[in-house]
Design a protein around this nucleic acid. Structure first.
Lengths: 344, 344
DNA sequence: CTCACCGTTTAGATCGATCTAAAAGCTTTT
DNA sequence: AAAAGCTTTTAGATCGATCTAAACGGTGAG
């Protein structure tokens, strides 16, 4: 019977209102669960929505209300499992606040990051969670907040004036070094790779401070290839220096896994005549043999923290900038042992 | 007064037009790179945009043009590195088409998936890439496409009438089984876990078919715990049956890594007296020792395929449903060897 | 009887872009 | 000189919601 062939099948709020015998405004109030509307009217409208199969049009709402129920997330690398877990934590909290996540990958390039940030603003996101690309200056961030775009830094810290959710890398390094020192190790190397950003510097400085406060030489820092598959073959770099390490702290678990493989290839037995500590504690740490002792940095929890920080700021845009820094935790497994005879 | 700034300071297309001495409509044409507008006018408008610091308002544009430049992606698990790579491939293609990705996590629950899909429609996404939660019926998908929502299935195949990007799991299984058979293995188990969905069934059936066509018993299917950390301890399940396997094909690399650890704990030497083939070829396959022989399923490329499929459908919504099925590739490394003396 | 007041409902303006159809400016043809 | 044809520009309607300020019906106080 209803053969009024509308160009679009789209059901609008006006259709719902008419069907329920009220005005557009009232129907709008029902949707937004306003207490202003009478109980009987409410049920009538809700029923009409159901009968017509109405779907809310955020786009129209956002235009008027200047609220998009959308948050942007920019990370430097989506394939890294660590960022995947971070994203997962963010998504969970954002979703439960009834909002959605727009995700983008800066590939650690500031130019791309610039473009993406512009796109985020074009899409009218209510706020952005940013793991800044290496080389991002504080000016870039302040420029955004001055455009009154709520912003949260995650994992990489650029400016004190802007919310930040991250990890106490220095504390994590202290735990790793203390653990190795307590096993008798004195020549401990630090294996790094990847782009240089605030988290990188914090880890390196954290390692050096920890070594110094144990009275050990903090300068055995070994740079490895960025390509994951080249790490194993580069394990020899650990022993190219003057002083021969008996243990190594790794910048992350990717390096730890690569080095474990490379050390195995060189005939060393990790956990017996060489010790290895990872960083991040990805799920593989538990799966490899020997099980990897690693500093757990709880990426999912950090993502949740970042999202909560942003949601808080959305409700009160003028509150003081906050820092939420999570204490990591050393998970001791099998990859470290007492210091053994020096290796040739 | 930053909140007031937001309203007052917002530069609209009208401001740009006035500043350039043209009408709103002309300015709009310039933005959309229409050939209709004169060269001199174009540069004048572009200059005005730059001077005023104009940012495009997608929200307003979408309302009128019914195009949001947004695609939804729903995956069953964000923390799984495999899906992270998939997402990465999708994001790259979508981004280079000038659109953005809204990502959501169904947690393999059809109820959540239902909610998320509704939210996607509320946000007016132009299309959705869906890795359907286990238990999703074809009716759910058809209901969506009948609402004229462009849809692409990825990795899990529910309906033939809807675009699909995935992997030839059966072909991958054939390669894995053939490889083991050529090494002399005749008692080959298949280790599975996780929820049952189309990809699950395809892998299981692929394995069974491959075994049958080698004249081998296809029924040694061993179910392992879903929890990653429990897999290693469950390795004994492989040997609980009547027939003792000399090799195992794994449902994915997560299982392979877990079993490798568990077999090591039982004193078996993978690649020497027991053989192991993984599936997916995550980056860790290369990093573990012995290096894992695994079937590479190219998640990034599949994500790219899915995104391209969706973009094509957006430009021509009425084209025939297509299937893009990628052929996986067996990466032979060190975890398989010739059949050895039966294990006790 | 009027007025103020309450909870509820509504008409009409509004957000910032795009679309449509027509006008304006120019050249070329009749 | 008028008509026709082309390119370029524009006014005004429009998308589907929210916001504002006022109206509405009913009650109780003055």
């Amino acid at each position: 019977m209803p053969s009024e062939d509308r160009k679009k099948n789209r059901v609008t709020l006006l259709d719902v209102a008419r069907h329920a015998g009220v005005s557009r405004a009232t129907a709008s109030l029902v949707i937004r669960k306003s207490p202003l509307v009478g109980a009987e009217t409410r049920t009538r409208v809700e029923e009409a929505m159901r009968e017509l199969g109405y779907v809310y049009n955020m786009g129209a709402a956002r235009l008027r209300a200047e609220r998009s129920h959308t948050v942007g997330v920019i990370v430097p690398n989506l394939t890294n499992p660590f960022f995947a877990e971070l994203l997962s934590g963010i998504e969970a909290v954002v979703d439960s606040a009834g909002m959605v996540v727009i995700v983008a990958n800066s590939g650690d390039s500031v130019e791309r990051q610039d473009r993406l940030m512009r796109r985020m603003r074009e899409h009218g996101v209510d706020g952005v969670i940013l793991c800044a690309a290496a080389g991002t200056g504080p000016g870039f961030l302040h420029q955004l907040t001055e455009h009154s775009l709520p912003l949260v830094q995650v994992l990489r810290h650029i400016s004190d004036d802007i919310d930040y959710a991250g990890v106490d890398y220095a504390g994590g390094m202290r735990q790793a070094v203390d653990h190795l020192a307590s096993l008798g190790h004195r020549a401990i190397a630090f294996a790094v790779h990847g782009p240089v950003h605030s988290a990188y510097r914090e880890r390196v400085e954290g390692f050096r401070d920890a070594m110094r406060s144990c009275g050990l030489n903090p300068d055995m820092i070994v740079r490895l290839p960025n390509q994951i598959r080249e790490i194993a073959a580069a394990a020899h770099l650990l022993f190219d220096g003057a002083k021969q390490p008996t243990a190594v702290v790794c910048f992350n678990d990717v390096i730890a896994l690569g080095l474990a493989a490379g050390l195995y290839d060189r005939g060393l037995r990790v956990g017996e005549n060489f010790s290895l500590v990872g960083f991040d504690d990805v799920t593989d740490a538990e799966a490899m043999r020997p099980r990897l002792t690693s500093v757990f940095t709880a990426p999912v929890a950090i993502g949740e923290n970042a999202a909560r920080l942003l949601l808080d700021r959305l409700t009160d845009p003028s509150c003081q900038p906050r820092r939420v820094v999570k204490e990591p935790q050393l998970h001791i497994r099998q990859s470290c042992g007492p210091v053994a005879a020096p290796v040739s």
